[in-house]
Design a protein around this nucleic acid. Sequence first.
DNA 1: ATGTCTTTGTGAACGCGTGCACAAAGATAG
DNA 2: CTATCTTTGTGCACGCGTTCACAAAGACAT
Lengths: 241, 241
Amino acid sequence: MATGRNHRPATRSRGIPEATVARLPLYLRALTALSERSVPTVSSEELAAAAGVNSAKLRKDFSYLGSYGTRGVGYDVEYLVYQISRELGLTQDWPVVIVGIGNLGAALANYGGFASRGFRVAALIDADPAMAGRPVAGIPVQHTDELEKIITDNGVSIGVISTPAGAAQQVCERLIAAGVTSILNFAPTVLNVPDGVDVRKVDLSIELQILAFHEQRKSGEDSEGTARKGPDGDMPAVMPA
Amino acid sequence: MATGRNHRPATRSRGIPEATVARLPLYLRALTALSERSVPTVSSEELAAAAGVNSAKLRKDFSYLGSYGTRGVGYDVEYLVYQISRELGLTQDWPVVIVGIGNLGAALANYGGFASRGFRVAALIDADPAMAGRPVAGIPVQHTDELEKIITDNGVSIGVISTPAGAAQQVCERLIAAGVTSILNFAPTVLNVPDGVDVRKVDLSIELQILAFHEQRKSGEDSEGTARKGPDGDMPAVMPA
DNA sequence: ATGTCTTTGTGAACGCGTGCACAAAGATAG
DNA sequence: CTATCTTTGTGCACGCGTTCACAAAGACAT
Ligand SMILES: NC(=O)c1ccc[n+]([C@@H]2O[C@H](COP(=O)([O-])OP(=O)(O)OC[C@H]3O[C@@H](n4cnc5c(N)ncnc54)[C@H](O)[C@@H]3O)[C@@H](O)[C@H]2O)c1
Ligand SMILES: NC(=O)c1ccc[n+]([C@@H]2O[C@H](COP(=O)([O-])OP(=O)(O)OC[C@H]3O[C@@H](n4cnc5c(N)ncnc54)[C@H](O)[C@@H]3O)[C@@H](O)[C@H]2O)c1
């Protein structure tokens, strides 16, 4: 999962727990599906099942937003969709820039799930001069030289980084200097940012490695032969000095 | 430095906290970078900075694996790379299949970061007959009809789903029936799986929505006008019965 | 051998998140 | 209006993860 900067003093009594915030989009997705099927109300039990969480957890999550349910009946779907959207800040459209239009960046640009969820791809930026002007997903790629101007002109506060790892920190700094305060990072590197800037990361390899760990556990459960813990003998040639 | 003699059996090995497992790949990445620069040893403080975590947390994490450090000196980089790799199950290569070779699936297939981290793309699978045989990233796409055979023949236990959301559950079930026990899901939907199967999800939209939440907080900090909690007035026409 | 200095490994305290279990709220029926 | 039934909202307890702080381990110098 992604991590965020969490150096907030607990002074926020109004503050919604981070774990709850991370689940709100999940509820919203399930509610949107119900809304499209014109389902008027839903119980915490049903909605929890659709979102893949515990119903008590869901009710507690909603209790942080307010009392939006009706006892004996459940929650009004449309009303809840609105309340969660408002809480997440999705009643406004967020302009987003994607920096690094390679394999991944192009896929992101082509992804239709953004617009339907309150985000608009304001610009695509790449350092390769050969790409400048070439349209990707109907949007012409602009050169990195114009990064600052693009951010300022469009009032962009959310940036997506899909450049190689080596360029990520530098791109990150330019984005922040230009006014971006939230970054979604796909490059496999740690980004150093000042306070007040949120970073979330998506790292494919990390997810696979976590799966591999559990996978190894499963297969090694009976034999215990693959992951023996015995004294030396399964160590690499390289030894500590 | 610790000699092979002190290598201790680490009887505590059962039950590494999930939070720790999720950080091991992070440490591994930082250590690999140090290794490439031929740095022999590293202190918990330095490594923690490189991995973007607290040094006490790092030391506690490593303590679950065993005593691999030397007081007064730090950790032997090569030795630690090996220990973490082994713990994560990366000393063996994991064959992986990607199902759904569209924008995202193709980007994943083209991603070079897999092989260098112990994963091998064994096959690309898509339901579109027009794609069958067409090479993507040098690997010919195979039709969904052959899914079961591919999984069995290659002994695949890890599957990646990058199909549209509507197809994900069905694909998931076929993968599991064929023998897959770990799934990385990119489709924005909840997957229902039996016990013993691990699912990790990557959801772009959710990450952006979480960023939007914090972004809204930041801008509303001074004015407080956007996120007021007051009684009705900013509600939609739709009201609960 | 003795002392100093650095850094690990971990006990303990704390805070957050989760899930149980139930009283209260409100709908619905008679 | 009273009774019954459903489902919310939440108090509480528990377990996990984080962080602090320090004794002990070991390197290194003399
Ligand atoms: N492709 C994947 O599925 C995948 C998966 C996980 C992680 N990643 C990571 O995502 C990032 C992008 O992956 P990719 O496969 O698209 O790589 P890519 O090489 O195809 O694309 C990188 C793009 O970034 C551009 N670029 C380089 N330096 C830049 C700079 N300073 N400013 C702006 N643009 C710059 C390049 O011109 C190129 O178009 C990498 O860090 C990669 O590790 C990719
Ligand atoms: N592109 C992105 O950046 C992005 C971002 C976030 C999430 N996603 C999600 O990832 C998934 C894929 O996105 P995309 O942009 O690549 O979509 P896409 O439409 O480009 O590709 C989907 C591919 O899946 C194939 N497919 C459909 N049904 C299938 C089935 N039953 N079995 C096998 N293959 C099947 C299609 O033939 C197509 O090639 C979607 O669920 C999307 O919501 C994509």
